[in-house]
Structures are given as structure tokens and as C-alpha cells.
Nucleic acid binder design. Structure first.
Length: 636
DNA sequence: GGAAGCCGCGCG
DNA sequence: ACCGCGCGGCTTCC
């Protein structure tokens, strides 16, 4: 037994009895801090080795799973599912994934408090300005550190020994060294004090609802990571080969094209002499285009598309090169992440790194599977459900517009949705003055762009540019201005809402923070809120740095969308997810399930019902519609 | 040789 | 003067 600040005693549970008395004590106190030590990072191939439990009386229990037998993992699962006991963790998603993998069944975890998520929620959007050494942008935004060590230091003034607590340390070693034990105990001991502070902070900022939502959503994110998704690797490799061929040819085409026109690509950067035009290098591409008399200042796709339309074969080849090389990179990235255990790919999901509240994904990014183009369809066909399973895909239809209708309370929009009117068509008809059923496809396309652009503060100029680059249709600036004016006449409520958001930009609300020196304190900050009360704040440094009006328009919409999909994920996890029906993807406004073939239609209906009900509740009185499909690949 | 900035891309 | 994300490639700086 060692005495240290932070914890009063370390108790090594060495017998079943001691472990059980620990469980009984938790039952009495109703709250505990929980920390797992595993043999590695990956829930699929590594396992939990030690369990550390902190109690309010500052004692820390440490149990060795190998010593006490794997049964205690079952007890652990039971603890997580016990609604009377609050479990305080740091990075609950990883812990849940490990526990789920080790007991090999679905967990109905509840009453979880994740310190990492709590901290991220409280600081959402906040950033510091740090000097950067770039001359162009002298200040760099950096977001607060939400690691456990950072939280302990910020709120408690306790410096945790980072080196030793690093997860990479050989926890697999049979026995923990006394020094390591102490280190683990210190880490566990900060959990409960941090809980008290962050829970209070959530309350002060009226963020409890959001926190509860996020804590509940952890289970479904863990499930998505564990489930992963299957990719037909053999077929994927064949496509990679084909595309590598095409890339080679394209590079030659591009280069020949340039040669033929007399362009000698020799870039002298001091060290290197380059004889080939490198299509990956904007400088080369730009130089060639300039030499051909195209006065371009960027090599963006939209610019190149313009040139290609005017008959520039070179621009076309560069575009094709970029498209193919992107797809190639995509496939290679996914292929490099195939897991040896199950042959599936397990993207990582992050719950709130984004300031609006959206989920993001990495390694590989499951939220940017190619969609546009024929080759993209071929790639989507590589994603397959397991044998005997089907994909159920459901996506919210026109959700951003519905959210805007809800937030702004705009009458025309709300009525249109209530009556089931196609909003793009309605906009087209209001702009052109045509009758609802006379609207041409072209008009509807332009209206679609308007709907998405103008609600986020887009200008007539960008409207003109987008119509041109997306549909190759020229629209005069006057025409675009006129359309914009009519748009805001039609949706007066949206205009008023935008004005209010603009004013909010200069108003401030008190937002609470905490640190170990000042205790609780507030700062007056710019702040937006979503339908569920999620906040994004902007710090105010002197005069210059503030939210942009675009962010003020966009954040409540995107954030409400995030609230909605997370509400859905929670309910889907509770009501649908089972051993063989799983949620395997969540792409902003879309949910992807993998379910047994014979019950696919049934699950599809359940999913649709859940999404429409929860959506319509959140956005009341705006109804929410969901399109749901049963598929044998990811392609449409 | 690695970190960081920038551009361009594509998902929503 | 359109928001959010991550990624790959190139360049520059240390």
C-alpha cells in the first residue's frame, strides 16, 4: 500500500473474494472510475489485461484478468450494463470495444460518463492562436488538448507521468512493476475528481442533454468499428492494376501532349532537373497552360473543365489523371487496412472532433467512398455484405433544408414540407415564375444549387460559378442577382433568420470554463446552438478574429444534422442491433446496416420508422422523410 | 528525414 | 468571400 496525493490506497485484488468485495463497494457508492489496460491497441487482436477501478474514497482497485480468470470480464460487462452505477471513463469507445470483443456479445452499456467527450463538448469550437512560422499566416489556430494528462493538469493541477502511462508500454508483461502500478493508480484516481468538475461544467453551460446523447452514442460507434466492412480484395486488386495501367498511359499522354506543343519541362529548383511534366505539380500544369496562352491562376478542376470544354485536350487528360489517381489512392488505402483477423476493414470513428458536432472517420475514411462517375460505381460494387446478409441503406431526404425550415421557421418552406412539395421545384418555380409542373430539369438543377448555396450565405458570383461548373450552363451575373433576390423574397423567414445569426455574431453569451487556478469562470463568447442545444463557441481575441457569417449560418444546420443522426444511432443500437444485425456506417445523413437477408425488408422498415419518427420529433412541425433501400453492394 | 503548410479533391 | 471533414502530393523549413 502506497500513499500518494490523488489516491489513498492501491488495492491489488488478488483473489475472487477481493474482486467481489470491490464490486460490492461500487454497488454501494453508485459511481466508479474505470480504466482498462490491454495488451495492445486493437480490440480485435489484443485483449484486456488489467482492470483498474477508482472509488470515491480514493482507493484504487487493480485486478489482473489472467490471475483472476476471464470471468471477471463478464462482471465488468455487467458493471457497464448496471444502470444504477455511473462509470467514468476516458475514451469509452475503446473500452467498450475491448469489453465487447472479450465477452463476444452485444453490450447494453448505460450510465457512462466519458471525460474526453465531456471536455470536447465544453470546448467545442474554442481555439488558441499560436504563432506559426509561416509568413503568409502568422497565427495558427490550435485546439485545446483533450488528453487525460491535459485534463488532469488543467483542472486538477496534477501532472501525470506521460511516458510511463503511454499505452504502448509493455502492459503485456506478466506482472506490473510497482512503478507502473502507481502510475496506473494515479491515472485512475483523477477520473472521479475530473468527473465532478466536467459534470458541473456541462450543467453550467446547459449541455447535459448533448452530453447524455454523446455518451449513449458511444456504443454504436464502438459497434461500427468492431464490425467493419467487407471489401472484395481480389476484385479491388484487379481494378488497381487496370488503373495503374491507365495512369501510366495518362502520364504519357499528358507529357506527349505537352511535348508536341513544344513545351520543354525543365524545372530548375536548384537540385533537380525534371524532363517530364508532372501532372501532380500545379506549377508544371500551370506553366504549360500559360505557355499555351490560357491565362489561368489556378489548376482547380472547375477551371480545367472550362478549358476542356473549349477543346483543350491537355486539360482533359489532367482531369482524368487526377480522377483516376484519386480512385487508385483510395483503393490502395483501403487495401492497406484489411484486418488479418476477419478480412474486413475497420475504419476508426471520432465522435466530436469537428466543431459542428459531426462524426468523422479515418484510416481509412469511411465517409468519403467515391460516388461520382462510372469508376466510382465500380468501386462501390466492391463493398459487399457478408454471406447471407444484405445492406440496408437509409438516408434523410433534403435534411439540411428541412433543418433550415425548422430553425428559421420560414413559412413557405415549412408549408412546402408539410404538403410534401418538392422544394427544389418550388424554388425553381418561384424564381422563374413558371408553373409548378412546367419547371424544366434545367431550372430545377439551378434551383437545387440555389437552395444549398444561398442558405449558407453564398453570393450571386458563386451561384453563377457553380451553375457553370456543375452543369456547364452559363448564367449572367444579373440573372444570378435576380435569382438571389427572388429566393429571399420567397423565403423571407430565412432572410430574417440570417440577419439574426449575423447579430448573434457580435453578441456574446457567458460560457463557462474551469481550470485549477481560477476554478469556474466564464468568458463572453460568440456562440451558436443547435436544435438539441449543442454549442459551438468562438473566442474573441481583440477585434479581428471572429466567427464568419458563413459559419454562423452553417453551424446550427450542420450541428442539428449531427444531433439527429446521433439520436438515430442510439435508438438503432438499442432497438435493432443484435448479434447478426449491425450498424456498420454513419455518413452524416445516412445510416448503413448489415442484416440477415431474410429479415432485410423488416429491418429496412424499422430503420425508416425510427429515422422518420426521431427526425420529425426533433424538427417538429417539419416532417422528415427517409429513403431506404436493401442492397447487395454499396452501389445504388 | 520528418513536421508543417498549402493545394486540390471528394464525401456530406 | 460556402460550411465541415480527411487524404495525398508537393514544397519548405528545421
Amino acid at each position: 500500500m502506497t500513499i500518494r496525493p490523488g489516491f489513498s490506497s492501491i488495492i491489488k485484488a488478488e483473489s475472487q473474494q477481493e474482486w467481489e468485495s470491490a464490486l460490492q463497494e461500487i454497488e454501494k457508492t453508485g459511481i466508479c472510475g474505470l480504466k482498462l489496460l490491454s495488451t495492445g491497441q486493437d480490440p480485435l487482436s489484443h485483449e484486456i489485461r488489467h482492470i483498474s477501478i477508482a472509488l470515491p474514497n480514493k482507493s484504487v482497485y487493480i485486478a489482473d484478468c489472467q490471475e483472476l480468470g476471464m470471468d471477471i470480464l463478464g462482471d465488468l460487462a455487467g458493471l457497464l450494463e448496471n444502470r444504477r452505477i455511473r462509470k467514468v471513463l476516458f475514451d469509452a469507445k475503446t473500452a467498450l470495444a475491448f469489453i465487447r470483443a472479450s465477452v463476444n456479445r452485444k453490450l447494453n452499456a448505460c450510465n457512462i460518463f466519458d471525460l474526453m467527450l465531456a471536455s470536447q463538448i465544453c470546448w467545442s469550437g474554442y481555439y488558441y492562436l499560436t504563432p506559426s512560422h509561416s509568413p503568409k499566416n502568422p497565427w495558427k489556430k490550435s485546439i485545446p488538448d483533450h488528453s487525460l494528462a491535459a485534463l488532469a493538469e488543467r483542472h486538477l493541477g496534477i501532472i501525470l507521468d506521460k511516458e510511463k502511462s503511454d499505452m504502448n508500454a509493455d502492459f503485456a508483461a506478466a506482472n506490473l512493476s510497482p512503478c507502473l502500478i502507481e502510475c496506473i493508480a494515479s491515472e485512475s484516481a483523477v477520473l472521479l475528481p475530473l468527473h465532478d468538475i466536467l459534470a458541473e461544467l456541462l450543467a453550467k453551460n446547459d449541455l447535459q442533454k448533448i452530453a447524455d446523447l454523446e455518451f449513449r452514442a458511444v456504443s454504436s460507434l464502438a459497434e461500427m468499428e468492431i464490425s467493419g466492412i467487407y471489401l472484395d480484395c481480389d476484385q479491388a486488386k484487379r481494378i488497381v492494376e487496370e488503373e495503374e495501367n491507365e495512369i501510366c498511359n495518362l502520364v504519357w499522354t499528358v507529357h506527349d501532349e505537352a511535348r508536341k506543343k513544344g513545351f520543354v519541362t525543365v524545372s530548375h529548383d536548384g537540385k533537380r532537373l525534371c524532363y517530364y511534366l508532372n501532372p501532380d505539380r500545379q506549377e508544371d500544369v500551370m506553366a504549360f497552360l500559360k505557355s499555351r496562352g490560357y491565362g489561368v491562376t489556378s489548376t482547380k478542376a472547375e477551371v480545367l473543365r472550362g478549358l476542356a470544354a473549349a477543346g483543350c485536350a491537355f486539360a482533359e487528360a489532367v482531369l482524368r489523371y487526377r480522377y483516376v489517381s484519386h480512385l487508385l489512392a483510395f483503393l490502395n488505402n483501403w487495401l492497406s487496412h484489411v484486418h488479418a483477423k476477419d478480412g474486413r476493414i475497420h475504419p476508426q470513428y471520432f465522435q466530436i472532433p469537428s466543431s459542428t458536432g459531426r462524426i468523422s472517420s479515418k484510416k481509412p475514411n469511411a465517409q468519403q467512398i467515391p460516388r461520382a462517375g462510372d469508376d466510382a460505381t465500380a468501386i462501390r460494387r466492391l463493398f459487399l455484405p457478408a454471406v447471407g446478409k444484405r445492406f440496408v441503406k437509409a438516408d434523410f431526404s433534403a435534411i439540411e433544408l428541412r433543418i433550415m425550415a425548422f430553425l428559421s421557421g420560414d413559412r413557405a418552406m415549412q408549408e412546402a414540407f408539410r404538403d410534401g412539395v418538392d422544394l427544389h421545384r418550388l424554388t425553381a418555380c418561384k424564381i422563374s415564375g413558371a408553373d409548378m409542373n412546367q419547371v424544366t430539369d434545367q431550372q430545377r438543377q439551378a434551383a437545387k444549387i440555389m437552395n444549398f448555396l444561398l442558405i449558407y450565405g453564398g453570393s450571386a458570383k458563386t451561384l453563377q460559378w457553380r451553375v457553370l461548373s456543375d452543369y456547364g450552363r452559363f448564367m449572367s451575373l444579373d440573372e444570378a442577382e435576380e435569382a438571389k433576390t427572388r429566393f429571399f423574397q420567397t423565403y423571407e423567414g430565412v432572410r430574417v433568420w440570417q440577419e439574426r445569426q449575423l447579430q448573434e455574431m457580435s453578441y456574446t453569451v457567458p460560457h463557462y470554463f474551469h481550470n485549477c487556478i481560477q476554478g469556474y469562470f466564464f468568458m463572453p463568447l460568440t456562440c451558436t446552438r443547435t436544435a438539441l442545444g449543442r454549442r459551438r463557441v468562438w473566442p474573441r481575441f481583440g477585434a479581428g478574429v471572429r466567427a464568419s457569417k458563413f459559419q454562423m449560418y452553417n453551424t446550427p444546420c450542420q450541428g442539428t444534422g449531427a444531433d439527429l443522426i446521433k439520436l438515430v444511432m442510439c435508438e438503432v443500437y438499442d432497438k435493432i442491433s443484435s448479434e447478426d444485425a449491425r450498424i456498420i456506417g454513419s455518413i452524416h445523413d445516412e445510416i448503413l446496416l448489415e442484416v440477415p437477408e431474410e429479415r432485410a425488408e423488416e429491418y429496412a422498415r424499422m430503420l425508416q420508422e425510427i429515422m422518420e419518427r426521431i427526425g420529425s420529433e426533433l424538427l417538429h412541425p417539419v416532417p422528415v422523410k427517409v429513403e431506404v433501400k436493401v442492397r447487395t453492394t454499396l452501389a445504388e
